[in-house]
Design a binder for these strands. Structure first.
Lengths: 208, 208
DNA sequence: GTGTTTCGCTACGGGTCGTAGCGTAACTTC
DNA sequence: GAAGTTACGCTACGACCCGTAGCGAAACAC
């Protein structure tokens, strides 16, 4: 029988402070060196822990960076109701863009997504720790818009409902990421306004 | 006085076949090993050239991968006129998605974009070799839609014109990339249809 | 106290990096 | 042809990072 907390009953407990120091050092090194030149030896030295301690907790660079970045996503769970679909979209866009203000996220997120191309476990980890948490904000805005009557209620076919939600999530998140990472131009209020307007107009007619 | 071809007058010329072999081997290694485990030693061995030859032409892994990927973008210069803005958008979306069908592009493009976060020269290289070439397709579709009267002609302020074009490019390219890379779901005809419809509806009302 | 787990430290073989040096091959110019 | 120039393949090298093993000490539960 597996206990609820699987393996921590006896012995010396793992230092929670070491965890924070390692993840912080990882983000710091990520900004200074970038993904390619980041080494676990360097991270261990910055964090003030032994390299072996690092390997006891993470399997490698990929997993470490995912956790270091995921920690920055943990706080934001929802978004205040801004009164209209357009305002809510604008809020979500600015929220996403705010996350990409962290240099560590800009550098690390793309790198781990690239690595996830041929590492299914890593992709799952990214999805659970980061992507699904962002998607929740989009689903929240969608539900609010439905309750306001701005967009039609859920389709009788749940598959179609999920399909539409996936589309709008890819559009919002993808646009912001592309703007910041590829076009290398910051997301300002004006851009968020125009994107929100574009989507509201598109959504208002998409079901007729 | 700099000659038009700066440095190639005398001496043994560089093997064009070696170039092709190296870039091909890079793409092959990229698919098999991924960005992180790709080594220049391995690429040289696959290409059948000496490692030193590789270093004589590229400064490092970043530059090599950018060129290896950029070669896959060189053929597609434009898109047939499909008769309507919606059809053209659909065509561009499917074209972008088709590029991401190359496993080498999926794996390498994100990685070099991540590295470009702290390497301005690399970012410029990516922009010239890849991004601007894609943007051209969007601008082409925009011009066609204007000649059809589907969207208003260029604003008197060229800055506003460029701003709107940048927005729609970020939305199209970003949505496709996010769909394929993050959501890890292929772009099929149905998805392209729905995205194109969303954008056409949004664009039809955005200037009122 | 005893038992257990984590910690810091050191050391190690294996691999890649990026460069240097050498002799040879290919091509241009005279 | 011969001389000059550049690219090539090959070998070797110090430097660095990887990931693991082994050790004694520290921090907990019982």
């Amino acid at each position: 029988m597996e206990p609820p907390t699987p393996h921590k009953r006896t012995g010396r407990p793992r230092s929670a402070e070491a965890d924070r120091a390692i993840l912080g050092a990882t983000r710091e090194a990520l900004v200074e060196l970038g993904w390619g030149k980041l080494t676990l030896s360097d991270v261990a030295a910055r964090a003030g822990v032994a390299k072996t301690t690092l390997y006891r907790r993470w399997a490698g660079k990929n997993e470490l960076v995912v956790d270091a970045i995921a920690a920055l996503f943990e706080e934001q769970l929802d978004l205040p109701d801004l009164g209209s679909l357009q305002a809510d979209i604008r809020g979500v866009v600015l929220r996403f863009a705010g996350l990409l203000d962290h240099p560590a996220i800009r550098t690390g997120l793309m790198a781990v997504v690239a690595e996830a191309t041929h590492d299914d476990a890593l992709r799952l980890r990214i999805r659970e720790a980061i992507v699904d948490r962002q998607k929740h904000l989009v689903l929240l805005g969608r539900a609010r818009a439905q309750s306001r009557g701005e967009i039609p209620p859920d389709d009788t076919d749940p598959a179609l409902t999920a399909r539409d939600a996936d589309l709008i999530f890819d559009v919002i998140a993808g646009s912001v990421v592309h703007r910041v990472m590829v076009s290398a131009t910051p997301v300002d209020d004006d851009w968020a306004d125009r994107l929100a307007l574009l989507l509201v107009l598109g959504l208002s007619g998409v079901r007729r």
